[in-house]
Design a protein around this nucleic acid. Structure first.
Lengths: 219, 219
DNA sequence: TGGGTCCGGATTGGATCCAGTATCCACAGG
DNA sequence: CCTGTGGATACTGGATCCAATCCGGACCCA
């Protein structure tokens, strides 16, 4: 038995992939930034081989892009791309919620717990913590569908915008809006009204698109 | 300038990825079969490094699965998984068609061309050619939406069932059914009725699920 | 006889080294 | 002054070699 260190991945690839996800979603690596393999590998204390495999994983998740002989770049999102991602999320998350309709009561405690953390982090201005809790909130709902592929797909759509999400959480107004919209969703869920929850999630997303668009259109 | 050889990929990874896709979708590599890296690398005359990166790509596309220190396996699909994939396709392809509604006239020639090839291959019993033409047919429609992410997503859902599709094309009855259903879709498109096309595509998919289910439930 | 342990082969994961390609800049020519 | 060409350089892509892990079977012991 090894551990004591809690859950360090069993392969270097997995470790590197995790670190890169964190760096990208936290804004440490900005969209559009090129990824210099040698430097990164040295920094993480692995060779370039597992780094490259990790980058291929992230490419599949839409977090980075690759061009032959020119290397990897942190994925950028155009305004059109942003709208597309959110439109697809609208379709898939609505489906997830409808499938989960009868099981939503079971998912509620988890969502409420996540929401408490969202509110705490929002008030404290802890952007990274808020992003993480926000994700927990939403996935508590969609995962209740019990459809693993659907969940993974929705997850990858979230990933595609994570790099920007932390940027727009930086503004207090956006954080407050998110908190309020989450509460509206929760209210619908407590009332057992899945369709109302779907509508309020749509509204929530529309707000996010507007705010993200503002972030995205500046340098 | 090099060529003459038509379009051999610029990297070994891309070449290997292409070969693997072909092998999997053609049924040469069966679902559930383990992938022995050394043997495959030797067979394709590359080292294991580009092979592993190619496998990571295919993992992102859902064609293979990976477990640490135990290697890659051609992805298997349960009956539930199959239904899930087709349900998601239903949502996304309907969206693509609706977005493309006004541009469908432009996409028609490509679709009709593909359909001619589908019919030829169906009659000749050329399974692989039929699978390829079938894909061209469907993507002529969805690509008309002009939404690249949506197109890629739908593509990856197709990939997930490709390994089985060629198995069920092996039966003449299934081939004839596909041809007939495609004709119905085309008729709706020629009439400029996108909603009717959506309904007929739904019907087409339902037929596929039934037939695939039969294939999937036997050894 | 059943179960657990330990060893050996096979296979995957990782590091280092080498080759090929793209980019950038200097410089020649118009 | 601008354009195009050539070469230097830095980076990515690939091959080989080594280490770590898993799996099957023999063996020992209760």
């Amino acid at each position: 038995m090894d551990s004591g260190v809690r859950g360090r991945p069993p392969t270097a690839q997995a470790f590197v992939a995790g670190e890169l996800r964190r760096a990208i979603t936290s804004g440490e690596l900005r969209p559009g930034a090129p990824i210099r393999q040698e430097a990164l590998a040295a920094r993480l204390d692995v060779s370039r081989v597992p780094l490259r495999e990790a980058l291929r994983m992230l490419e599949g998740e839409g977090l980075v892009e690759h061009r032959a002989h020119r290397g990897y770049v942190v994925a950028e999102l155009s305004m059109d791309g942003l709208r597309e991602v959110y439109r697809i999320r609208e379709l898939l998350e609505a489906e997830a919620l409808r499938v989960a309709a009868d099981r939503l009561a079971e998912a509620l405690p988890e969502a409420e717990e996540a929401q408490r953390e969202v509110e705490r982090a929002a008030a404290a201005g802890e952007v990274a913590a808020m992003a993480a809790a926000n994700r927990r909130f939403h996935f508590a709902l969609t995962d209740a569908s019990g459809l693993p592929r659907l969940g993974r797909l929705i997850g990858s759509l979230w990933d595609a915008t994570d790099a920007y999400r932390s940027l727009y959480y930086a503004e207090p107004g956006n954080r407050e809006r998110v908190v309020a919209e989450h509460r509206a969703v929760l209210a619908a869920l407590r009332a057992g009204d899945a369709e109302a929850a779907v509508r309020r999630l749509d509204h929530h997303r529309a707000g996010a698109v507007a705010a993200l668009g503002a972030v995205l259109e500046r340098p």
